[in-house]
Amino acid sequence: MRLPVYQIDAFTDAVFGGNPAAVVPLDAWLPDAVMQAIAAENNLSETAFFVPPGPGDEDAWGLRWFTPAVEVDLCGHATLATAHLMMNILHPGTDRVVFRTQKAGLVAVTREQGLLTLDFPARPPRLPEAIHPGLVAALGGPAPAAILAARDYLVVYDDAAVVRALAPDMAALMDIDRFAVIVTAPGDEPGVHFISRFFAPSEGVPEDPVTGSAHCTLIPYWAQRLGTDRLAARQVSRRGGALTCRLEGERVRIGGQAVLFLEGHIHI
């Protein structure tokens, strides 16, 4: 079997920045084990697979995402990469695409003022009933200002320098009782409202370069804290990435750019 594959850097305007995702167009879903094996072989934060709309799908393309270790419920950068591929290479001139996902429902991507903007569900953080006792020690920094949670822990610091300097114990984070850990602080660059980093070693992603799904939690938090529904964000991983953010009720809008790095074929 010969499958097309594209590698696209998302949330960046230049190759070697942002977060690289592999995107594999399919005519029909492959067995889960095969898609998982392809994602493991690609060894990127996520590999996206998508299929054409089926009967009753109302023009929504099927979309799934896999890390090297697991299938995930929501992924921003690989959705952005998939939309970039469809709008600019496979179906040029398209300005909006809708995807049907297994766990996040319908998500959409729209071309807006030079950006591709994700329409994703908001996941506001709340005080968790319990906090894993090893969380702060595993992160390796000082005591945070707050610890909240949605799908992931949201660990808030007052100083961006602390977030940038964290060197987590990834083995210890493997035992944390949430999908991942987001760390965040107020922005320390002109025009940037907040910064973040994202760690999910138990899911096959020690540190994700730029994480759209994390901003489903970050945007509601910072919108409420700063009193604005329009925010500029930066994820301060080694590669780094820029995101424009809006809170719209129970949805978030996450904008960014993407660039094609590689195209080829998978032989299995």
Rank of each mutant, 00 (worst) to 15 (best):
E46P: 03
E46V: 04
E46R: 00
F49L: 02
F50I: 08
F50M: 09
V51Q: 06
V51N: 09
P52G: 13
P52A: 13
G54F: 00
G54E: 00
P55G: 00
G56A: 04
G56Y: 00
E58Y: 03
E58W: 02
E58M: 06
E58R: 11
D59M: 07
A60C: 13
A60R: 15
W61A: 12
G62F: 09
G62Q: 06
L63R: 03
R64L: 03
F66K: 01
T67L: 02
A69H: 12
V70Y: 09
E71M: 00
E71G: 01
E71Q: 12
V72C: 03
L74F: 06
C75W: 05
G76K: 02
H77C: 03
A78H: 05
A78Y: 09
T79P: 11
L80T: 02
L80W: 04
A81T: 12
A81W: 10
T82F: 07
T82A: 08
H84I: 01
H84A: 11
H84M: 06
L85N: 05
L85V: 06
L85S: 06
L85H: 05
M86N: 08
M87L: 15
I89C: 06
I89E: 14
L90V: 11
H91V: 13
P92E: 12
P92W: 11
P92K: 10
T94M: 15
R96G: 01
V97F: 02
V97M: 11
V97Q: 00
V97S: 02
F99H: 02
F99G: 01
A104I: 12
G105K: 09
G105V: 07
V107D: 05
V107R: 04
A108H: 00
A108F: 00
V109Q: 08
V109W: 07
V109S: 10
V109N: 07
T110H: 12
T110F: 03
R111L: 13
E112S: 12
E112M: 12
Q113I: 02
Q113W: 08
Q113T: 12
L115W: 07
L115T: 10
L116G: 03
L118F: 04
D119L: 05
D119R: 08
F120W: 08
P121Y: 10
R123W: 05
R123L: 13
P124L: 04
P124A: 03
P125N: 09
P125F: 04
P125C: 09
R126K: 12
L127E: 15
L127A: 15
P128C: 06
E129A: 15
H132Q: 11
